[in-house]
């Protein structure tokens, strides 16, 4: 963790390259579900609501956030245990989600998502016509 600032070798690339010269991290996540919904909470320290995007396309949920943490002006880093960076993580959902009713809330660097399960379409009986 000694390497902190913009060393391009430190930039972690997952598939596509990023245009910003900062590392991209996988945020830690808790995921649980009950009979009505799926709940996710992700740790995104340094990210504010404007720098965060959550998208659901088909069954792929993508969370990406940019850290707004700025190094203090006039100070130099003497001891480092973490790095500022961006976050991105993709989840494939196994169940249909009601996309219009997703609730998202970001507080103190933790994003909490509630993804209500889509109501299954009622079973429909199909009349079979016997021909001949």
């Amino acid at each position: 963790m000694a390497d902190i600032s913009g060393d391009p070798r430190a930039t972690h690339q997952r598939g596509a390259e990023t245009t910003r010269n900062v590392p991209v991290f996988l945020p830690a996540a808790d995921i649980y579900e009950n009979k009505d919904a799926l709940f996710l909470s992700l740790e995104l320290p340094g990210v504010d609501g404007e720098a965060l995007s959550v998208t659901l396309e088909k069954r792929v949920l993508t969370v990406s956030g940019r850290s707004r943490a700025q190094p203090p002006q006039g100070y130099s880093l003497t001891h480092a245990e973490y790095r500022d960076g961006d976050y991105e993580r993709t989840f494939t959902l196994s169940e249909a989600i009601d996309a219009d009713k997703i609730e998202a809330e970001l507080t103190d660097g933790v994003l909490r998502l509630r993804l209500p399960k889509a109501q299954p379409a009622p079973a429909k009986a199909i009349n079979v016509k016997a021909v001949g």
Binding site: P72, A80, E81
Partner: peptide, 11 residues
């Protein structure tokens, strides 16, 4: 790792 991770800045 210990929690929380800490950075120290000096001026």
């Amino acid at each position: 790792a210990e929690f929380p991770p800490v950075n120290i800045w000096r001026a």
